[in-house]
Design a protein around this nucleic acid. Structure first.
Lengths: 218, 218
DNA sequence: TTAAATTTTTAGGTTTGTCTAAATTTATTG
DNA sequence: CAATAAATTTAGACAAACCTAAAAATTTAA
């Protein structure tokens, strides 16, 4: 079965909302797909008829099994394209979202299979989000920021929340990037700052504002 | 200005029809975009309003300067993506058209600039059609291999597909290199081998495996 | 637990791109 | 050069995806 770009965008958005909240309501979804609640109702009826969502009027809703499967293929395409744009075409990670938003709707299983192979089956996209494999499975590693991870456990940086120029500048200075192995050796209670250790570099201290934005898998 | 996928498809089709015939009529165009003449009329009015076609009711029509420019950007995207699909993802040349048909509508100048650079600024797509550069300029010749070119027409070698040492060795023996003027004088049906004539050299016969890898413009 | 606030749905419209059938214009040809 | 054929346009509809405004259902909270 084939789905329109709009249908795919709704399914993808429901998926992302479900990850955070358990169930999704029309207002949340309308905001996410950048439309009005009335339009969401129309679309929900269509998606229900296609058995992609479990929906009853006036109730919150969730994806069916088929809906989740579809969502994962879209997420997979999006993240693989982001990886391609950054690692092959040399885009910066903050520039690729909108383009991947278009590329994720290109319709060819063979294309994605070959792209995945060409990219050497990456597990995380440039933002650090896990990429579902061809069967829809992906890493379930918990992602925590440097304020949350346990002390003295080696972690691998895989996501930077604040992607402002000033933040990137600071990260460059500390030689922190996606993939960097990092350990929190100490927390200072007074201001929440953390002492970190990176490989053989001298110890450094990051403010809590900075540490809060650096996510890693432990 | 931004254009819908439909508008782009019409413009691209008018362009391709113009290359063959000078002017385009509704019946030809309807067949090419796989729709009905009435729909073509509707779209022509819209494209005229946007100054992409020179059109008067009941008359044949052509692209304006702006229309041609747009057409070339679409052709450029299509052919660059085809090149990518074949030379990076390993698709066969006959498998890529439909996918490129979707990819050509992805909207990002930066993406195409970077893709072009990543592919090392190719001049021909996998079907031998010339790729417009960023200013819309391209070769006005099609590239074919020695199995495809017409008999007894002088052609100029401009690309060797298989660049293995053994192939280069063989080419040296036959005194074939980029720029060589070559003519196919005969084809042997049994094994697909071709008899060639190069300037004042004695006639020679190339196997189909070799001929297939030698590309030229006629 | 009822009134107010919020959320969701319905009703009725719009735009884009398509269609069929009928009318009109242009081209062909006896 | 008139009549037939072919091409093109118009008129009126339809589906998808959206909208606003009003009605209905649900939730909150006084």
């Amino acid at each position: 079965m084939n789905f329109s770009v709009s249908e795919e965008n709704y399914i993808k958005s429901i998926y992302h909302l479900q990850v955070q909240h358990q169930r999704v309501n029309a207002t949340m979804l309308a905001a996410m797909v950048n439309t009005k609640a009335a339009s969401v109702t129309d679309m929900l009826k269509k998606l229900q008829k296609k058995k992609l969502v479990d929906y009853e009027p006036y109730k919150s809703f969730i994806l069916t099994e088929a809906g989740s499967k579809l969502a994962l293929t879209i997420v997979r395409k999006h993240r693989l394209w982001e990886y391609f744009l950054v690692n092959k075409l040399g885009f910066a990670w903050h520039e690729v979202h909108d383009i991947a938003e278009e590329l994720e709707h290109i319709n060819s299983v063979e294309l994605i299979t070959r792209l995945d192979n060409f990219l050497d089956f990456p597990s995380f996209d440039p933002h650090g989000d896990p990429i579902p494999n061809s069967r829809g499975k992906m890493s379930n590693l918990k992602r925590s920021n440097l304020l949350e991870i346990p002390l003295k456990k080696t972690a691998i940086v895989n996501y930077i929340q604040d992607q402002s120029v000033t933040m990137l500048d600071l990260l460059k200075h500390y030689q922190i990037s996606i993939g960097t192995k990092i350990k929190v050796t100490r927390r200072f209670e007074f201001d929440g700052s953390v002492e970190i250790k990176i490989n053989k570099l001298p110890d450094a201290v990051l403010s809590s504002q900075v540490a809060k934005n650096i996510y890693c898998t432990v």
